[in-house]
Write a protein that binds this DNA or RNA. Structure first.
Length: 272
DNA sequence: AGTGCGACCCGAACGC
DNA sequence: TGCGTTCGGGTCGCAC
């Protein structure tokens, strides 16, 4: 699942490949993917060029001449660059064709991804964007900020770490990793988190996410046009997907439970 | 306001 | 082997 570090890698990789290219044709194979008005999307995107790519949380923000194209990859969204003459394959849902007969193709097995074409002045009118919280590596993410937002919440801390309106960009993998590094049990009631623990969560967020962004960055160098632009971060995960393996810190067997309907991995000795 | 859950999807994993 | 069933995961909308 693309979380903040992967989206950051996709952004950096695509930037090198599509900037200043003008869209001459758009094919929308799966229209439900478009959240904004479909006809406007089809008409307005023609003859626009990509002039920048930004990111807010897990949202990719493609800047065109007159619009922003918002793209959320959800679980399995990927972008490929291909020659237009290549046959359209299964799971390719949106195809942008440039003047040089190259394509930017959006591929998504689960069809969960979303796109949105909006006027530039409306970026912060989009509910999902407006509501994004503070990013893990932002200096504004402090223990005071977290404690303030943890107040009155009885849900498990793991569930709250996934709330994009508080911390923007954490997904299921990094929420588990952050809690391991902070030494906190995923089922802890959020309103019982202490100052010291909130401080550990802040540190863990910055550590885990900056490491992952670095690792995502190394993927860019091995990128070739035949590969999907996914940003496969190859950091070593301490707990996520490590069920039945020994904890790398204390050798205790990693447990898997469900928290808020999400598969959750933790070390029962390191995370109290 | 906060919480919990179904819906959206479909390939993979699982069960018989 | 082959077929049917279950699972998972980010976000939204809805009910409580």
């Amino acid at each position: 699942m693309p979380e903040l570090p992967e989206v950051q890698t996709v952004r950096a990789t695509l930037k090198d490949r599509i900037l200043n290219k003008k869209i001459k044709k758009i094919e929308i194979i799966y229209p439900k993917m478009i959240e904004s008005d479909l006809l406007e999307f089809q008409n307005n995107i023609l003859n626009q060029s990509f002039i920048d790519i930004k990111r807010i949380g897990k949202w990719l923000i493609f800047e065109l001449n007159d619009y922003y194209l918002l793209s959320h990859l959800r679980m399995e969204g990927k972008y490929f660059i291909k020659e237009h003459k290549m046959p359209i394959i299964k799971h390719e849902h949106i195809i942008f064709t440039f003047e040089d007969d190259s394509d930017l193709r959006y591929h998504d097995v689960r069809k969960f991804g979303k796109m949105n074409l909006i006027n530039k002045e409306d970026l912060y009118e989009v509910e999902a964007i407006k509501k994004q919280g503070i990013e893990p590596v932002d200096d504004k993410l402090t223990k005071e900020y977290l404690l303030d937002h943890f107040k009155g919440k009885t849900a498990p801390i793991k569930t709250i770490l996934l709330d994009q309106t508080i911390i923007s960009g954490l997904g299921n993998i990094y929420a588990d990793e952050v809690l391991f590094h902070a030494g906190i049990h995923p089922l802890r009631k959020t309103n019982t988190i202490t100052k010291k623990e909130a401080s550990k969560i802040v540190e863990a967020c910055k550590f885990v996410i900056s490491k992952a962004i670095e690792a995502g960055g190394t993927t860019i160098r091995s990128y070739t046009s035949s590969l999907g632009v996914t940003g496969l971060f190859q950091i070593s995960l301490m707990v996520h997907q490590q069920k039945d393996k020994p904890c790398q810190k204390c050798n205790t067997i990693i447990q898997k439970i469900k928290v808020g309907g999400r598969g959750t991995y933790y070390c029962e000795k390191c995370q109290k």
